[in-house]
C-alpha cells in the first residue's frame, strides 16, 4: 500500500488500536464550538424561567435535602449543612448531568451520524463543555451562601479550577464509555438513571467520608467523584487539610477512565453509523 501524500484523504478499514487523531480533532474545533453553542442555546429554550433554572435547581435540591437529612439528624462540622450540601452538589450535579446526557447523545444525534462525517466524540464531549454553564451558576449561588453565612475563604480556593478540571475529565471519560455502550446496547440508557442514583448515595454528598466505617471504605476509594467532593470542601472553606491521597486516586482513575473511554469510543465509532 502506498503511503498517503499530504492533503490526501485515504479511506480504508481501520485495524487494531487506533490512536487519537489530535490533528483531526483540531481541524474540527469549530464544529465542536458550534455543537457546544447549540447545546447552550437550546438548554433552557421555551421555559418561562430560562437560565434561572441553572440557579434554581441546586437551590431547590439544597432545600429538599437539608430538610430531609437534618430531620434524620445528619450534621456537618465546621460549616452549616446547606453549605456542606451545596459544596458536594456542585461537582456532583455537573457530573450526573453530563453522564445522563452523554449516554443518549449518540442515539439522539443519529440524524447527524448517518448523514455527515465529523469525529463522533464531539457529541458527548461538547456536553461536558456546555454543562459547565450550570456549574458556574451554581458556584455563584455558593458565593452568595458563603457571604450570607459569613464564612472564611481559604487559599485552597486556588485549587478549585484544578478540581473542576478533574470533574470534567471524569465526566468526559465516563460519558465516552456510556455513550458508546449505549449505541450498542440501548439497555444502558435505562440503567443509567439507577447508576446515577446509586452513585449519588455512594458519594460523600450528604455525609462526609470520615463518617463511613471500615467495610464500605473501599467504595469511596474506587469512586473517583468521592475524592473530588472531599477535596472541594476544604479547598473552598479551608477548614481542614486537602486530602491529597484521595485526590491522587481520583486523578489516576480519571486519567484511566478517559484514556480507556477514548479507545473504546474509537472502536465503536468505526461501525457506529451501521448500528445507530
Amino acid at each position: 500500500m502506498e503511503t498517503p501524500k499530504a492533503d490526501e484523504l485515504v479511506i480504508r478499514p481501520r485495524r487494531g488500536f487506533e490512536p487519537l487523531n489530535v490533528a483531526e480533532l483540531w481541524g474540527f474545533r469549530e464544529v465542536f464550538f458550534f455543537l457546544t453553542w447549540r447545546d447552550l442555546k437550546v438548554r433552557y429554550k421555551q421555559t418561562l424561567l430560562g437560565i434561572a433554572w441553572a440557579a434554581l435547581q441546586p437551590i431547590i435540591m439544597v432545600l429538599i435535602f437539608s430538610f430531609v437529612f437534618s430531620r434524620i439528624g445528619m450534621k456537618s462540622e465546621h460549616m452549616p449543612y446547606p453549605v456542606f450540601l451545596l459544596l458536594g452538589l456542585i461537582p456532583w450535579n455537573y457530573f450526573a448531568s453530563v453522564l445522563g446526557q452523554s449516554t443518549v447523545s449518540l442515539v439522539a444525534g443519529s440524524g447527524l451520524i448517518t448523514k455527515i462525517y465529523f469525529p463522533r466524540m464531539l457529541l458527548p464531549l461538547s456536553l461536558s463543555l456546555s454543562a459547565l454553564i450550570d456549574l458556574v451558576i451554581a458556584f455563584a449561588v455558593l458565593v452568595v451562601l458563603i457571604l450570607w453565612y459569613q464564612l472564611p475563604i481559604g487559599p485552597g480556593i486556588l485549587l478549585v479550577p484544578f478540581l473542576i478540571l478533574l470533574t470534567v475529565m471524569n465526566a468526559a471519560g465516563f460519558g465516552l464509555w456510556f455513550s458508546a455502550l449505549n449505541a450498542r446496547f440501548r439497555d444502558i440508557q435505562y440503567a443509567v438513571h439507577f447508576v446515577i442514583l446509586i452513585w449519588m448515595f455512594a458519594s460523600p454528598i450528604f455525609y462526609s467520608a470520615s463518617m463511613i466505617g471500615g467495610s464500605f471504605r473501599w467504595l469511596l476509594v474506587l469512586n473517583p467523584m468521592a475524592g473530588v467532593i472531599e477535596a472541594f470542601r476544604p479547598a473552598v472553606i479551608g477548614h481542614a487539610p486537602i486530602p491529597w491521597p484521595e485526590l491522587g486516586i481520583s486523578a489516576t482513575m480519571g486519567v484511566i477512565v478517559l484514556v480507556t473511554g477514548l479507545y473504546y469510543f474509537r472502536r465503536v465509532e468505526r461501525f457506529l453509523a451501521d448500528i445507530i
Binding site: L9, I11, R12, Y117, F271
Partner: peptide, 24 residues
C-alpha cells in the same frame, strides 16, 4: 456513505485528493 466517511468499508480503499463536501 463510504465516500462521505460515514461508514467504513470492509475491504478496499478510497483516495481523495482535495476538499470534500458531501450532501446526503
Amino acid at each position: 456513505k463510504i465516500l462521505s466517511r460515514i461508514t467504513e468499508p470492509t475491504r478496499g480503499e478510497v483516495r481523495i485528493r482535495g476538499r470534500v463536501a458531501s450532501l446526503l
